[in-house]
């Protein structure tokens, strides 16, 4: 087993374990922290794939901004007021796990079939990226602002709408609780 594969297996095990702990953790704050660890592992995988800009965006946007927002809301509501309620359907969890295992098996079959058929291959070692600037902010930016200019503008409008929507929602919530 090469060093690169060994590192992949170790970090991949950490990613899967943190995702599982995120799902089964009773405390919402613990779940958020496990999810941050999972995002860090995925940022590491972006680095091994040569996507340096994506790795930094993953850390700043996901592990930074989004998870801070999650933790902020959890703290505001209060983690002690977020107990996991009893499931009204008793057989829901076993059935869900069974169906998830079926789905995961389908994923694995597809991925292994693709590997065995040679459609996905070993792209070369980490130092062997297609070009020197592959995945850098410069290459991402030049493609983003030329070929993907329209999606970029649409996404910026979506962000603006989300921002205004968040402001409007909180204003309405304050108003209705104040009227009660």
């Amino acid at each position: 087993m090469s060093l690169e594969l060994a590192i992949f297996v170790i970090v991949g095990a950490i990613a899967v374990a943190s995702a599982l702990l995120m799902v089964i953790s009773r405390n919402a704050v613990h779940s958020a922290l496990w999810l941050i660890l999972n995002f860090a592992c995925i940022a590491f995988f972006y680095l091994t794939l040569g996507a340096t800009f994506m790795a930094l965006a993953q850390i700043t946007v996901y592990a930074g901004a989004i998870m801070v927002l999650f933790l902020f809301v959890i703290m505001m509501i209060g983690p002690q007021r977020l107990p996991e309620p009893e499931a009204p359907i008793r057989w829901q969890t076993p059935v869900t796990v069974f169906l998830a295992v079926v789905l995961g098996t389908v994923f694995l079959i597809v991925a292994f079939a693709a590997i065995l058929s040679g459609q996905v291959t070993v792209p070369g070692a980490l130092h062997d990226v297609p070009t020197q600037a592959y995945g850098s902010g410069e290459s991402i930016g030049s493609v983003l602002f030329n070929a993907y200019l329209l999606p970029f503008e649409m996404v910026s409008v979506v962000l603006l709408v989300a921002m205004i929507g968040a402001v409007v929602f909180t204003r309405n919530g304050t108003h209705s609780t104040g009227a009660e």
Binding site: N38, F107, F112
Partner: peptide
């Protein structure tokens, strides 16, 4: 000497 892209796809499916 390197990691197959399919392994990333498998990990993605598991997550």
């Amino acid at each position: 000497s390197a990691v197959n892209i399919g392994l990333y796809v498998i990990l993605s499916g598991v997550l």
